[in-house]
Design a protein around this nucleic acid. Sequence first.
RNA 1: GGCGGAGUAGCUCAGCGGUAGAGCAGGGGAAUCAUAAUCCCUUGGUCGGGGGUUCAAAUCCCUCCUCCGCUACCA
Length: 508
Amino acid sequence: MADRYYVTTPIYYVNDSPHIGHAYTSLACDVLARFMRLDGKEVRFLTGTDEHGQKVEKAAATAGMDPQAFTDEVSGRFRRLAEAMNFSNDDFIRTTEPRHVEAVQALWRELVARGEIYLDSYAGWYSVRDEAFYAESELVDGKAPSGAPVEWVEEPSYFFRLSAWQDRLLEHYRTHPDFILPESRRNEVMRFVEGGLQDLSVSRTSFAWGIKVPGDPGHVVYVWLDALTNYCSAVGYPDTESPDYQRFWPADLHMVGKDILRFHAVYWPAFLMAAGLEPPKRVYAHGWWTNEGQKISKSLGNVIDPRELIARYGLDPTRYFLMREVPFGADGDFSHRAMVQRMNADLANDYGNLAQRSLSMIAKNCGGVVPEPGKLDAADQALLEAATALVDRVREHLAVQQFHKALEAIWEVIGEANRYVDAQAPWTLRKTDSARMATVLYTLAEIVRRLALLTQPFMPDASAKLLDQLAVCTGARQLAHIEAALVPGTPLPKPEGVFPRYVEDAPA
RNA sequence: GGCGGAGUAGCUCAGCGGUAGAGCAGGGGAAUCAUAAUCCCUUGGUCGGGGGUUCAAAUCCCUCCUCCGCUACCA
């Protein structure tokens, strides 16, 4: 049954400030969640924060704070980002919440009971300076690649039998070709797994800020086993009979950045299968942004703060740009020039102006009410049908996370509509055939309504304003209403531009 | 090093065996409803280099060059 949809962002590590990468991942999920809701599905959209681990423990200590107080604060930043970006998440999970701790410990016990976790010791060359273990093969002249001295360290650790899951993982990838997208990432993962898997150390004794291993409180659960489990804890695990779990698990989509694909596409399905649970239906790894052609890094100081984008360009234009500019999955570049281009050419000129020219003609020539159409001719019908057909086209593109193609398809119809206006020239009809003019303007109002219906997931506020200007009631904004035509005679509010043109500041 | 991907108009990219395409930028024109927005026409590329297969190659094969990704336990 496809009447439900469960989509997740990664939980964001609180040792980091929210940046464009976080906003991007969550935005993609938000667009999907909003689209699915408009398409009549019951949606669960989850995001949250990952709050355990050595780095958090240290960062809290450095800040002179208790780890929980520290994570409370940083987690709040991610909540505020979600609000600022107008994300429609239904839930926000934190790994320090009791519901999650309980889920992780239950999953752990399940894995132990099934013989998938065993106690051994973890040994390797450790560099205190780098805080990292190195493989024998990575050492250079007996030192870390960084040149730091290493020492042989052994500590007790629990291991997950990842090696036993190699064949079953490969089988899963083969029988579920859409499990990992885009395809190039799927191939990378498969090659990686084909290369052989080692058992995974899933506990740590070197720090304490984490979830205690059941029955062995000296150990803390490995951060990834902890973090990934959030997707299940949020829908009620370990109560697999709960309504939420029954409804939403397995998740339809885990959206992730390409940097954390392996954890989601290899470890996570292995953990789940080992615990007798179903793996998610899809993991999608998207690309990264550069800033004006430059790789983004903290040391370069060119990190993009989503709040600055919103302040400068506005929220919906920013959302539009991120979803439209780059083929989803690939890396992309954020540049002021490209942003302004999109804002002015796509939004202000094409879409905004189409709406504005249509609505203001109605305001001036039809008494500010939805005009009464005569019989529709072939051109009217072709345009209306093209708009209706967009529902399926957009749905198909979003089913495989091709946001840019969905928008491209919508903009094709916007282009057709602008050509239609010129071809029909209602300003001439006003003098020669006012009945035909009314038909044309009615068709245009209908087109704008249908377009606005479809742009809601991408640009919720602007689309809502357009629908308001067409006096479409809030209960008639589902995709199912695509053909629920406007009622002639309905009074319309005064039209106002929805997509302002970006004008460069005059040089000082 | 190994495996994989990509190099096509100024920019971003589509095409992947049959006379080189789109959007944006540039140029010209039309229109004047509209956020000086829209519409039409148009300049522009020996499709990274070289070799090969074929009646025919961005499109298949070989080779070279350049760039990028993956190559496990910080998240």
